[in-house]
């Protein structure tokens, strides 16, 4: 599954970059996030409760940041396991561009799901993911602007 999007965030690139690397900010913005721990500068562990179609589960996952080019771009790769609900793994390339007072964030993501998530919910994964991404960036914009 491929997903991409663009968001305008009312802050400069440096602020956005810092927030994107701030576990506390992220944990507030990720929908359903119950726990987010920064294990190193490039690694985080998270617990997220999600509902996709008929599948509801608590996913625990690890995220790694790669190809860091602060404050302009990085790649995220990660994998989350939701027990019998299945798993999701994938990656996203994130790019920040200053545009006046704002930052334009572009991302393109690839994801693969397995288990019940695939068997029962696959047709809903894309729309749910897009909705979750919108929620995240909505929260994120507010957090950064605030």
């Amino acid at each position: 599954m491929d997903l991409s999007g663009q968001y305008r965030i009312p802050a400069d690139v440096a602020t956005v970059w810092a927030a994107l690397n701030d576990a506390e900010v992220l944990s507030r913005c990720i929908p359903g996030c119950e726990e987010l721990e920064k294990e190193s500068d490039t690694e985080m562990a998270a617990k997220v409760a999600l509902k996709i179609g008929p599948v509801k589960a608590r996913f625990s996952g690890r995220v790694k940041l790669q190809d860091l080019n602060p404050p302009h771009s990085y790649s995220i790769v990660g994998e989350g396991k939701g027990g019998v609900a299945g798993f999701a793994k994938g990656g996203a390339d994130v790019r920040l561009t200053q545009d006046g007072d704002e930052t334009v964030l572009d991302y393109s993501a690839k994801a693969q799901v397995g288990g019940k998530l695939a068997q029962l919910g696959s047709r809903l994964v894309k729309s749910t993911s897009a909705k979750l991404a919108d929620q995240f960036f909505d929260n994120f914009s507010k957090a950064v602007a605030g």
Binding site: V113, G114, G115, K116, A118, Q119, S122
Partner: peptide, 8 residues
């Protein structure tokens, strides 16, 4: 990837 997506 070999995940069945018609499981119900």
């Amino acid at each position: 990837s070999g995940q069945m997506i018609t499981g119900s």
